[in-house]
């Protein structure tokens, strides 16, 4: 996709983001201000970039999985497993490199397992990944022995709360991961093949696409993204919290993909749009915290905003509105109620 095409693709998401930011600014006027504290940038926009990192990272992998007409419910649990693995390694006194490799390896393994269930055994993705979603937290708890496994390794903590060139490491992580994955899928043929399998698996197979390997690959990428997210949240609180790390984040990631306009029925996808979607969600989350509403309202406000966003982006809304207008006009002209349109087919 060329520059203008890309811009046109993500324009609805950018407009939504702008609207959300404007809305939050109404309730919290200094929301958009960014300052410099020491050598790092501070301010709500920076918080959004940082706090949105786990969902943004998950959304990258989730976009690819959803593009193949799948879904990955297990990413939150994979975060817990990978965070626990890394914390375990650091706790054992192994080097940070080993810990990170262990976490990334665990993420790949989890993705391979999901991909195996989906691509080889042919289990429906929602069921296949539900298995790890449920069991994964148990695995993480076994690793941490049920406690919050705390550590004091400064390098690991840097992954979660450090800053490079003023920008928090988690923000770098999702931005770079998004660029790398985005380039890989668009500069190779991976993106085309993923979309092709998502639109029509059978026809793609008959055109020679190796759908098994492709599905394994996307679930493994999703596992890898979850591993990065797990490392970040674990480093951020200097502890692996098997019960709560990544809890329900799979749903936010799916939501980010949906807000990004990728159809849950597979096919055309845009990682950039999903990432903007993740930032929209995080802006809402941060905005709610800053606006100072009583906590009982948090979920309701978020739900209403998400509903509004999805309604405004719905292609049907335009049709429905046009249809209502036309119907009104016709009714005015004939002075009679319009005749109901019958659905065709048996």
């Amino acid at each position: 996709m060329n520059g203008t095409g890309l811009l046109r693709r993500v324009a609805p998401q950018l407009l939504t983001l702008a609207a959300v930011l404007a809305l939050v600014t109404v309730f919290f006027p200094s929301f958009l201000s960014v300052g410099l504290s020491g050598d790092r940038l501070v301010g709500s926009p920076i918080d959004v970039l940082k706090r949105g990192a786990p969902v943004a990272l998950l959304a990258i992998g989730m976009t690819l999985v959803i593009a193949t007409r799948g879904i990955d419910l297990s990413v939150g649990a994979i975060m817990a497993i990978c965070g626990a693995s890394a914390a375990f390694a650091v706790d054992q006194g192994w080097s940070l490199g080993v810990a990170v490799l262990l976490a990334l390896g665990a993420g790949l393994l989890c993705g391979l397992w999901n991909g195996f269930l989906v691509a080889v055994l042919g289990i429906q993705p929602i069921v296949a990944t539900l298995i790890l979603m449920v069991a994964g937290r148990g695995i993480a708890q076994l690793i941490t022995e049920g406690q919050i496994l705390t550590f004091s390794d400064a390098g690991f903590a840097f992954l979660g709360s450090g800053a490079v060139l003023g920008l928090p490491v988690p923000a770098w992580a999702w931005i770079l991961a998004g660029i790398v994955v985005g380039l890989v899928v668009r500069r190779t043929a991976l993106g085309l093949l993923i979309e092709s399998v998502g639109v029509n698996l059978r026809a793609s197979r008959l055109a020679g696409v190796n759908s098994t390997v492709l599905l394994l690959t996307v679930y493994m990428i999703s596992g890898l993204c979850a591993a990065l997210a797990g490392l970040i949240v674990t480093g951020d609180i200097r502890g692996a919290d098997a019960n709560n790390a990544g809890l329900w984040l799979e749903l936010d990631a799916i939501l980010a993909v949906a807000i990004g306009g990728t159809s849950l029925l597979g096919g055309r996808f845009s990682i950039l749009a999903s990432l903007i979607g993740a930032m929209i969600i995080q802006s809402i989350n941060t905005g709610i915290l800053l606006a100072g509403f009583p906590p009982e309202f948090n979920l309701v406000i978020k739900a209403i905003l998400v509903l509004l966003i999805l309604m405004l982006q719905s292609p049907r809304l335009g049709d429905v509105a046009a249809g209502l207008l036309a119907r009104r006009r016709r009714a005015d002209e004939t002075g009679a109620a319009p005749r109901p349109v019958q659905e065709a087919g048996r």
Partner: peptide
């Protein structure tokens, strides 16, 4: 599509 699938994803 068929030619691309035959070449493999790494050789777009």
């Amino acid at each position: 599509l068929a030619l691309q699938a035959h070449r493999g994803w790494a050789r777009p």
